[in-house]
């Protein structure tokens, strides 16, 4: 097993090199003048266009520019993000906790609801309950997240004024920046509890409700489907029939089958979580939620190459590690699985 893990970890640098070269190459297809647009924002600066291109070496051949970037990364310098108005490493530290918070807050209901509905569906296969739970999950899966987000904002912010966009309100902002406030983790929900700031906790939670609910609704379907089919498979197996024949209560039978149905669910769930961490781009944009996704969306639109590359490094590493974690979990849950 250790060997397997090491082998997979050895793939990480290769994937990262591939990912960054791919992105860098894509940006490189633009003319140097276009790429200089990140630094030339105002007609007053037009006469400096050539100087900016020279300063950033935008006319150099691809390999030279890529290697220059790579050398800087090796020194721990990911460059400066013009969209975040801070160095990329700092921006990741600033935005990633927000995304973690949102992902976790969406992930929990996704898991709970998804597994519950999926089990319900499987147990009552082709009954009304099954049809209903599938319909609910499929509708979520079919909703454009941005339209749903806008409608939720319209109702819960515009009309009811309950759940505002953003991460926290101006008042909370003052609390967070107070000298007495300790930012232990960067996660507002956690930090507010650790500092005993109830109002802040509630405020942050209110801002998280809509984006988390949107994410839950639109991603739940996947988990419902996987749980359902995995449960159906288990329920069809001999041991379930035997157990039933022996007169075991239906609840006990289901509990039993569910334990064995976990494996594909865990795989899907870990991949899903990594996906949430890596790119809840649209949801964050709609709710003006200052996370990684919103930042990278702006960065990509403005050709902020250092930012996009930095985020790509982060998310691709997460992806590889997340898959690895899923495989390991798989083995832990099912000892029969052997690593090739």
């Amino acid at each position: 097993m250790a060997k397997f893990v090491l082998k997979r970890l050895a793939m990480l640098p290769l994937v990262l090199a591939g990912v960054t070269m791919l992105l860098f190459g894509l940006f490189q297809t633009l003319s140097p003048e276009s790429r200089a647009s990140l630094y030339i924002k105002d007609p007053r600066q037009l006469s400096s266009l050539e100087a900016v291109i020279r300063e950033h070496g935008l006319r150099d051949p691809f390999h030279k520019q890529y290697l220059r970037w790579l050398r800087k990364v090796a020194r721990g310098d990911l460059g400066y993000s013009e969209t975040a108005k801070m160095p990329v490493t700092e921006a990741v530290r600033a935005f990633f906790p927000a995304t973690i918070e949102l992902s976790v807050l969406a992930f929990i209901p996704i898991m709970v609801l998804g597994v519950w509905l999926g089990t319900l569906s499987a147990v009552h296969k082709d009954k009304l309950v099954d049809q209903l739970s599938r319909f609910i999950s499929i509708t979520g899966y079919s909703l454009p997240s941005f339209a749903l987000g806008l409608i939720l904002l319209m109702v819960f912010y515009g009309v009811l004024n309950l759940f505002p966009p953003g991460r926290y309100s101006l008042e909370s902002d003052i609390v967070v920046h107070d000298a007495a406030f300790n930012a232990f983790t960067g996660l507002i929900l956690l930090d507010s509890l650790l500092n005993g700031e109830w109002a802040l906790f509630v405020d942050a939670l209110r801002h998280l409700v809509l984006p988390a609910a949107t994410l839950t609704y639109i991603t739940m379907a996947l988990l419902v489907r996987v749980t359902r089919s995995s449960m159906l498979e288990e329920l069809g197996k001999d041991y379930v029939r035997t157990a039933r024949a022996k007169g075991l209560s239906e609840a006990a039978v289901i509990a039993h089958a569910r334990r064995n149905a976990w494996i594909p669910v865990i795989t899907i769930a870990s991949i899903l979580f990594v996906q949430l961490l890596g790119g809840v781009l649209i949801t964050e944009t709609v709710f003006a939620y200052p996370g990684i996704g919103r930042w990278v969306a702006q960065a990509a639109l403005q050709l902020d190459v250092p930012a996009v590359m930095g985020v790509a490094l982060l998310t691709s590493s997460l992806f590889v590690l997340g898959n690895l974690a899923a495989d390991i979990l798989y083995a832990v849950v099912d000892p029969r699985i052997r690593f090739k």
Partner: peptide
Amino acid sequence: IQWSTFLDQSNSSKLPMFILGWAPD
């Protein structure tokens, strides 16, 4: 067109006509 394309094309005389403005220093 995006600002980046705009910069590129105005700089290489590819735009027959362009619309911009001036705010003084």
